[in-house]
Simulated assay, not measured.
Amino acid sequence: MSRSHPGERASRGSRGRGVERADSGTVPGTRTARLRRWLGRRARLRWGGEEATGRSPWARGRILAALAVLTSALLAFHSTVPNTVGRFGSLLETFLPWLGLAVPLLLVLALLRRSATALAALLLPAAVWGSLFGGRVAAGDGGAHDVTAVQHNVSDVNADPAGTARTLRDAGPDLIALEELTPAALPVYERGLAPEYPHRAVRGTVGLWSKHPLTEAGAVDIRPEGVGDGWNRGVRATARTPWGDVAVYVAHLPSVRVQFHGFSSGRRDESAGLLGAALAAEKLEKVILLGDFNGTVDDRGLDPVTTRVDSVGRDHFAFSWPAAFPVSRIDHVMTRSATVTHVRTLPATGSDHLPVAAGITLDP
Rank of each mutant, 00 (worst) to 15 (best):
G16D: 13
E225A: 15
G54A: 02
L111S: 05
D315N: 15
P173Y: 00
V333Q: 07
L124R: 00
L124F: 10
L67K: 06
D331K: 08
N232E: 15
R113D: 10
T32N: 12
F88G: 07
A102H: 10
L99N: 07
V235T: 09
D352T: 06
G61T: 07
G301C: 00
F325R: 10
A357H: 03
L168R: 01
R87M: 02
A22L: 13
L74W: 09
L279M: 08
I222C: 08
A217I: 01
A272F: 01
A184D: 15
A73V: 14
K283N: 13
V250P: 11
H212T: 05
T80L: 10
R191N: 10
R267F: 09
T117M: 10
Y249E: 09
A139G: 07
T345N: 12
G40F: 04
L362D: 05
E51P: 06
G140M: 01
R314W: 09
H145N: 10
P97E: 05
L75M: 06
P6Y: 00
W231R: 08
H152E: 06
L274E: 12
P173R: 01
G276P: 09
V248S: 08
S155F: 08
G49K: 07
V157D: 09
G61F: 05
W98Y: 13
L92S: 02
T71I: 03
A277G: 14
D221S: 13
T361H: 12
V297P: 13
E282H: 11
F95K: 03
T30G: 15
R44D: 10
L175T: 01
G295D: 02
F317N: 13
R300E: 12
G13P: 11
P242S: 07
I360Q: 05
R37G: 11
P242Y: 07
E180K: 08
T345K: 07
H152C: 05
D310L: 11
H332I: 00
E282T: 13
A281I: 02
L346Y: 03
G359Q: 03
H78D: 14
A73R: 00
G143M: 05
R37N: 11
E282Q: 13
V250S: 14
L346F: 04
A76L: 15
V340N: 09
L122I: 05
A66T: 13
G230D: 14
R300V: 01
S90P: 07
P224D: 02
E51L: 13
F260N: 11
V103A: 14
L70I: 12
G262K: 06
A138T: 13
P347S: 03
F263M: 00
H78G: 11
A162Y: 02
A217H: 03
L275P: 15
T117C: 11
R314P: 14
A121M: 04
P254G: 05
W58V: 03
L99V: 01
S14Q: 12
T345P: 12
P161Q: 01
S265E: 15
D174E: 15
N294H: 10
G140L: 02
T307N: 15
L123E: 04
F88T: 04
S4N: 01
G61E: 08
A219M: 00
A272Y: 04
G218S: 11
L101T: 15
G192D: 04
S351G: 08
K211V: 08
E282M: 02
A121L: 02
L101A: 13
A323Q: 09
N158K: 05
A121C: 07
R236C: 01
V154F: 03
G143V: 00
A280D: 15
S131D: 15
L193P: 06
H212Q: 12
L70P: 12
